[in-house]
Structures are given as structure tokens and as C-alpha cells.
Amino acid sequence: MKNFKDLTLTDDFMFSKVMRKKDICKEFLELILDKKIEKIEYIEAEKTLNIDYDKRGVRLDVYLQDETTVYNIEMQTSNFANIPKRSRFYQSVMDVSSLGKAQDFDDLKESYVIFVCTKDLFGYNEPIYDFVTYDKKHGIIYGDEAHTVIVNANAEISNETKMGKFINYLKHNEVSDDFTSSIDDTINEIKLDGKMRGEYMVLEAKLMDAKREGREEGREEGIIMTYVNQIRAIKKKEKISIDEALIKLYIPEEYWDKVKRELLNKWFIFE
């Protein structure tokens, strides 16, 4: 992970914190959606929505609404291939979560899942891609009011427009108007906030633990497969059972069940 002092708007942690400032978030939405928004409110920071039938949770970094619409905003710097399916999942859990038991489908708010991507996913050099459901033959808009918006932070556009200035800030951290100045000032304020620094350090520690566990799991898998191959060789050469081979090889008790399960699940034990 980056050093806290080096974070920019394209880092997920910093992006979510900056977008927690209402005036910036409101201006950002108005810029990319090209519409006026009177008032926004945050539903819950870093909210996790759980759907009983799926048992899978989804963490929404910046989840907010106005009177008629709900929005989820996310910075994306990798794993671009799964964005379409992830957007579909986000839309579904947002709808189920927001619709009360006594409410009708007509009460569903218009929804926007917004990804700010550091790569042009579609190759048309558009700063904004706005996807809606429509009939392929006649171009009829379906009217489910579900949008996926991709902000292309890598677009090459003129710095003379507000959008161009924002995209340029995402790419180069260059302040060129009041909006990017407000973003830059907020980032500097966050970097001076000891509480924010502590939160980032906790996140960093959790990620390090996860990587360490992953390495340990990988190491264990390697040990198990080494034992599996040795046992298969002994069993084949000496015509003995798996249990006899496990004992003969002096497999540690902590690996016994895992090695035996690997043998039974993946190999012909009577070869």
C-alpha cells in the first residue's frame, strides 16, 4: 500500500473520504450526470448490504440518495473485467435493500452505480459512458431507471471544460479551477487528520494480515501436494493402502486429514 502522505484521489481510501464531503460529492454528481441535484444525504458510510437468499455481502463505499434517486460511487484502479457483472449485482442488492415490505415496485428510486476507472474500458475516449437497458432492434429505452455510469479517468479531452479539468486532476493532480481546488484542499486536510491516518494504518495492517494468511495457505498447499505425490509413489511401488502409506511416510497429524482428503478427492486411489 502507498504511504498515507502519498495518497491521491484515485486511491480508493482517499476517494471515499473526499466524497463524504457533501458539497464536493454533489458537484461531482452534477458534473458527470449533467443534472441539477438539490440535496443529498448519505445512507451509511461503507455500508454492507446482505441479501438472505444470496448470503453474499457487498460493501458500498459511498452510498447516498436524494429525493428521487440512489447512488453508489466507487473508485476502480484494477479488476476492470468484472465491472459489468458487479454493477448488475450492486443494482439488485440496492433495490432489495431500499424497498420496504409494504412498498410497491413503483416506489423504487432511480439508481446509479458509478465507477471512476483509471482505464478506458471501451476504447472510445469518452470521459463518461452511461449505460441503460434498451430494446436492441428499436432502441426503445426499457424504463427500469437503472444506470451504470463509467467515468474514464484516462480520457484525453480539452482542459478548457470543467470535465476536462476534473479528468486532468485525476491523471496529474493539477489544480485548475475551484472544483479541483476544493478537492485538493480536502485531500490535504485529510492528510493532516490523525484519526484518518490511524484508520488508514488499521486498513493497511488488515491487508498485510490477509496477504500473510494467503502466503501461509499457499505454503500449506505446497506441503500437502508434496506429501500427496510421495504417498502416491509409495502406494504404487509397495502396493499398500493410503493409511499405511501415511504412516510409513510419518505424515504430521496436522496434515493427515487434509492429505487424505486430497488423495480421495482428486486421485484414483486404486491405480
Rank of each mutant, 00 (worst) to 15 (best):
G218F: 03
S92E: 07
K47L: 05
S111M: 07
Y255E: 07
H138Y: 14
T10F: 06
I242C: 02
D11Y: 15
I83Q: 01
T118D: 09
Y90C: 00
G214N: 03
D95G: 00
Y134K: 06
T10Y: 05
L9W: 11
Y124G: 06
S182F: 03
D23C: 11
F28H: 04
P84N: 07
V113P: 02
D177A: 12
F80E: 02
I187N: 14
S78N: 11
V202G: 07
K235S: 09
P84S: 08
E30Y: 01
T77D: 10
T10C: 08
D6V: 03
N154H: 15
E199I: 04
E160A: 13
T186R: 07
E244I: 09
L49A: 01
D193W: 00
D144F: 00
E38P: 05
F122H: 08
K109V: 01
E38L: 06
I114G: 04
D178G: 10
L121K: 04
C117I: 02
L31H: 01
F13P: 14
E221I: 12
Y255Q: 09
F28A: 03
F4I: 02
N154Q: 14
I32T: 05
E254P: 09
Q230N: 09
E216W: 07
K239L: 10
R212Q: 12
Q91M: 05
Y124L: 11
W267T: 04
A146C: 06
C117P: 03
N125R: 07
A102I: 12
N168K: 13
F89M: 02
G123C: 06
K109C: 05
F179C: 05
I187W: 13
Y250V: 15
R86T: 01
M94C: 02
K266T: 10
E110T: 11
L9V: 15
S87M: 01
L263W: 03
G214M: 04
T148Y: 00
